[in-house]
Structures are given as structure tokens and as C-alpha cells.
Nucleic acid binder design. Structure first.
Length: 560
RNA sequence: GGCCCGGUGGUCAAGCGGCUAAGACACCGCCCUUUCACGGCGGUAACACGGGUUCGAUUCCCGUCCGGGUCACCA
């Protein structure tokens, strides 16, 4: 009967599983090489959570001399977003994630496919899935189901989106189970009738599991666990002949010879289904790695899965905020491998790709996204860059997200570079920038159009004192002075005005002075930079040049 | 609600039967210093709870509690 049924349902499928096996021979790879994949559905942007499994897959494959490929899981036409796949690939590439095989972007930014295990787009693999589905029907492990979605919905008395009460859940489960068992009882004649009438159908698995029995399973990250066997006749092939995730996963990862399936832990609950499928199909199960989810804090202070609406979920957010990809990658590494930071401290100059990624060092519990930590990682990375690349990167970012400022930077790259060179390059470089967006606040005052006096002088200083100090400065200022001479003059000015020139002496007897040379410097700083805090004043003045320094100081004098 | 996963400072985390329970970020203080940044030194702060097992539990087992995930012709 099963043979007849299989022909009835899939008259157009002439291929057999053996044909497929022949089409996808084992990969010729060295011992220990891992084959991993990233398998997103093209429904939108790359999620921060998606960067985790893809980074792990990429590292594991490339570290072992294996293959990392991209498979597009476009089995749900309803949710597909135009151009999402291209965007996905492009975004991943900016984070250093490149694929050896599968969907790849050509020079024009269009998708092309590479590799001998394709098609890499699931919507183009219908014949393959149907070949296996037919085989399962033939073997009595799957069957057609003509119950429509609408009928199924009626069975559910409650809306899934809503919070369900205890009894509702039970009623729901019982109703579904009863219906499922009833669906199994069909005759060939009934099937023929439905088919003749053109009724759509899905192919369901004939589950042989017992919910009360447990399957032992070892996850490479989570360790040993026991899960109940699957007893649910879940859908294999949807009514359009396209598989569900579960079925596509089993067939594709088998044929494409994936060795390690890396995915988020939200897949753990459906693992029993997959195990059952691999057994039914006679496939060897791959190794599984279920990665803990990234969380965020909600208003009530509870951890929540980072969802697409959240700040920092969309990878494009980081570009917008001005984070450099290296920082994000490194931050991800610190979360992924607990010994990464230690390694990095010992090897500060090596790229993270040199780090020996270790599955055993992966966390089993979900972590909270921490911008403080990201900023710290980022500051360190930027502080180690040379002035030229910082200038280029800040300019590129600003041109895209703050065009006016970007144009100002781009107008004179050498000038901008000299600014970013302040305090850079030594053993203890300044760490002022966590993002490119921080640049404007840090050094915008170098540009007249972004120069504003933000801080006022404290009340305790007499305006007359400040004015005469600034006037003296104007008289003695000489661009040719070296740093020491320049500061010696400031000290003299301070002393003449009744301010302590020596900080030690001032601290011993502060009441003997109107203030200190620190205050005098501050008068100048506010006049020249508009702020109480700034990088080294001598460097600032050297870069600003005589005219602008004197103009700003002059303007300040006039305003007092 | 069933099932699954998890629970060491505010965050990320070492630990894998015996430790004054590492380290990083954040925070606070001090030092350096003309401000800031950097750097140095120091500090506050943790094994969810209750039972076992054991000479001895953060570590092993059970229960409770808490948090998360999941229960589709979505992935």
C-alpha cells in the first residue's frame, strides 16, 4: 500500500535517495576538518544573535582546514524580504565572515553560487526533498494529511500569542493529539479522492516516539542531556511541496556533509524531531552545538532574549553608532570564549583569527549585552591604530552619517590627522574614542564651525584677573616656542598674576594664592577649546596655529 | 501549564571535593599630572535556597525557588 501511496503522491519524482547520495559524495578533506554552515532565512537584517553562530562556524571550519558555507533557508515565501540575502552576506563580510561555498556576492553585489553541493537555496531543492519524502512514504514513515490550516486553527481554541492558562494548554494538546491520530487513518481510496478533487496536502512524519521515553544526547556545548522522544507528527513537506525547517535541515546537512551544526539554543526543544528524522532517513547525525542566547534587560530588570527591535540587535546599528567591526568581533570573541581575553592580553598585536578557538570554553548560559565592555574593547583597539587610519575611518563614518562634519574633515586630511596624532603611538596611548561618533565631541573644536564655548569660568575667579592673564598670554605667545618654553611662559604669567606657578607649593598653601597654574591653563583652555577638558594644550595650539589661537583668546577677552 | 536549558560580585567570567573564591568591564579612593585621557596602586562587591553524599562541598545527587527558551504548513 505504501508503494502505491508514494506513487500517488509523487508521480513526478523519479529519483531515489541513492541518486542523491551519488550526487553529493563525501567531501575530500583532511582528517579533523570541520564542515560548518550559516543558514539564515532571508527575512531581514543580520541580528547580533546571528553573528554568534556564524562566527563560531567560521572559526571552527577555517581553523581546522574545513569548509564554511552559506545556505539560504528560503522555505517560507511569505516572510521573505527582497534583497535580504545580499544584505546578509555584505554585513557578515564587514565582520570578517567569509564563505568558501554557497551563496557569494559577485563584484556587482549580486548573489552567485559556488560549490559542488548546491543548490544552496532551499527553494531550488524541491526535487531533493521530495525524493526523500517519497521514500519515507514508501517505507510507511510518512503520510499525507489533507487537514487544512484553517481546520487546524479551529482545533486550537486559544490564540498562541496570548498567555495560556494551564487547562487551555492541556485541552489544546489533547485535541491536537486526537486529531493527529485520526489523520493517520486513511485509505488509498480516500487519498485518491482528495487528490482527484485537487485538495492540497502536507506530508507528515509518522512519529514512532514515546513522550515518556528519553533519548540520551550529547551537545558539544551543553554536554549530556536527556530529551523526550518525539511523538508529534510534524510536517515534513508543506502543501507547496517545500520542506519545513526540520526536514530541510536533516536532508541538507546530510547531503552537504555538515559535520557540526551550530545554532541558537532555541532549537533545543525541537532536537528530538531532528534526531528522529536522521534515524528514519538512515543518516548519521552531525555533531550539535547549541549556543546560549544573548539577552538584554527589559524595563522590569528581567533578562530577555535580544530581539530585533532592541538597540544593538541589528548589525547595521553598530555601523551607524560608529563602532568599528574589529571591536564588535573582539567583543563577540570575549563572550564566545572565556579565555579569549587572557590570550589577547598575552598577544596584543595578533588578530583574533590567530586565537585558538575552543569549543570547551564556550558558555552554557546566556549573557547580557554590555555596552560598557564593548566600549572598552573598542577604545583599546582604536587607541592602537595609527593617526592615518583613524582619520580615514572617522572621515568615512562622518561622511556617511554626519556629512557636514565629514566634509570638514575631508577638506584637509593632513590637518585632521595631526589632531588624531595627539597622544597616539606611545606605550600609553590616549583612549578618547570608543566610536567614530565620539570624534566630533572630542576634537570638533579644532574647526571654527564646530567651536563653541561650552564651559563658563567658575565664579570664584575675578574676571579682571582672567582678562589680564589672557592679555599677557596674547603678548607673549610665540608659535616657535617649544613645549617647555611655552609652559615656562604660562608659569610666569601665573606668578605675575598672583597664581601659584608650582603645583606642589600651591597644594601646601592654597590660601596664599588666587589659584594655580592649573587654573591659568584652564583659562586658556576654555578660551581656545571652549571646554574645561582637552588634550594637551601645547599640541592643540600648535595645530590650531597662531591666528586662530589669538582670535579665540581675543574673542574671549572681549566677552569678559 | 508540559518539556528543555541555565543560576559564582552590577556585567562577562575562572573554578572542575580541600583556594584568604582568579581576572576583565563598570563603580569608588589614592598616586602621577597644567585639565582630560593614559598609566600605577588600592577598595566595595558573589558561590539563589533547603536537604543529602563525604572527614570536607561553589564543585556530586535530589528538591524548591528564580531566570530563559519552546510548544506552527516560521525559521
Amino acid at each position: 500500500m505504501s508503494e502505491i501511496l508514494a506513487e500517488l503522491l509523487f508521480p513526478h519524482i523519479k529519483t531515489l535517495p541513492a541518486d542523491m547520495e551519488a550526487r553529493y559524495p563525501a567531501r575530500d578533506l583532511p582528517e579533523g576538518a570541520k564542515v560548518t554552515r550559516f543558514a539564515p532565512s532571508p527575512t531581514g537584517f543580520v541580528h547580533f544573535g546571528g553573528l554568534f553562530p556564524s562566527t563560531v562556524g567560521e572559526r571552527l571550519a577555517h581553523q581546522s582546514g574545513g569548509v564554511f558555507y552559506l545556505r539560504i533557508e528560503d522555505t517560507d515565501a511569505k516572510r521573505e524580504v527582497e534583497g535580504a540575502a545580499e544584505g546578509l552576506i555584505r554585513t557578515l563580510a564587514t565582520y570578517g565572515i567569509h564563505f568558501d561555498e554557497g551563496a557569494i556576492l559577485d563584484g556587482e553585489g549580486k548573489i552567485s553560487y559556488q560549490g559542488a553541493y548546491g543548490p544552496y537555496r532551499q527553494s531550488e531543492r524541491a526535487e531533493i526533498y521530495q525524493t526523500y519524502a517519497k521514500q519515507l512514504v514508501r517505507e510507511g514513515k510518512a503520510y499525507p494529511c489533507f487537514t487544512t490550516e484553517e481546520e487546524l486553527d479551529e482545533l486550537s481554541q486559544v490564540n498562541k500569542k496570548e498567555e495560556l492558562k494551564n487547562t487551555d494548554w492541556q485541552a489544546e494538546a489533547e485535541a491536537r493529539r486526537a486529531e493527529m491520530l485520526a489523520r493517520r487513518n486513511f485509505t488509498i481510496e480516500e487519498v485518491e479522492e482528495h487528490l482527484k478533487a485537487g485538495h492540497p496536502f502536507v506530508i507528515r512524519i509518522l512519529a514512532d516516539g514515546d513522550e515518556d521515553k528519553k533519548v540520551k544526547f550529547t551537545d558539544l556545548i551543553k554536554g549530556n542531556m536527556e530529551i523526550p522522544e518525539n511523538d508529534e507528527d510534524f510536517v515534513l513537506l508543506k502543501s507547496d511541496g517545500i520542506p519545513t525547517y526540520h526536514f530541510a535541515h536533516a536532508v541538507d546537512d546530510h547531503l552537504m556533509h555538515t559535520t557540526h551544526v551550530i545554532r541558537g539554543e532555541e532549537w533545543l526543544p525541537s532536537l528530538a524531531k531532528h534526531l528522529q528524522l536522521f534515524r528514519y532517513l538512515g543518516f548519521r547525525t552531525p555533531k550539535y552545538m547549541h549556543i546560549a542566547q544573548i539577552m538584554r534587560l527589559d524595563e522590569a530588570g528581567n533578562k530577555k532574549k535580544l530581539s530585533k527591535r532592541d538597540m544593538g540587535a541589528n548589525m547595521d546599528d553598530y555601523t551607524r553608532m560608529g563602532y568599528c567591526p574589529e571591536a564588535v568581533c573582539e567583543y563577540v570573541m570575549t563572550l564566545l570564549n572565556s579565555n579569549y581575553e587572557e590570550w589577547h592580553m598575552q598577544n596584543p598585536d595578533k588578530p583574533y583569527t590567530d586565537f585558538p578557538f575552543n569549543i570547551k570554553k564556550m558558555s552554557t548560559s546566556g549573557c547580557l549585552f554590555d555596552f560598557d565592555k564593548l566600549n572598552d574593547v573598542s577604545k583599546n583597539i582604536i587607541s592602537r591604530m595609527d593617526a592615518k587610519s583613524v582619520t580615514e575611518k572617522v572621515t568615512a563614518w562622518a561622511l556617511a552619517f554626519e556629512p557636514d562634519f565629514g566634509k570638514a574633515l575631508a577638506a584637509d586630511p593632513a590637518f585632521a590627522e595631526s589632531i588624531f596624532a595627539i597622544g597616539r603611538g606611545g606605550a600609553k596611548p590616549r583612549k578618547d574614542l570608543a566610536t567614530w561618533a565620539d570624534a566630533k565631541g572630542y576634537m570638533g573644536f579644532f574647526y571654527d564651525e564646530y567651536f563653541t564655548v561650552e564651559d563658563a569660568y567658575p565664579e570664584k575667579f575675578a574676571r579682571d584677573d582672567i582678562r589680564s592673564i589672557l592679555e599677557k598670554f596674547t603678548e607673549t605667545f610665540d608659535m616657535a616656542d617649544d613645549s617647555n618654553t611655552w609652559f615656562a611662559k604660562i608659569k610666569d604669567i601665573a606668578a605675575d598674576a598672583g597664581f601659584a606657578a608650582d603645583m606642589k607649593l600651591y597644594k601646601q598653601n592654597p590660601e596664599q594664592y588666587k589659584g594655580s597654574v592649573a587654573d591659568v591653563s584652564m583659562f586658556l583652555r576654555v578660551a581656545v577649546t571652549g571646554k574645561m577638558n582637552s588634550p594637551d594644550m601645547y599640541s592643540v595650539m600648535q595645530i590650531l596655529g597662531r591666528d586662530r589661537v589669538l582670535a579665540r583668546v581675543g574673542a574671549m577677552i572681549n566677552s569678559l
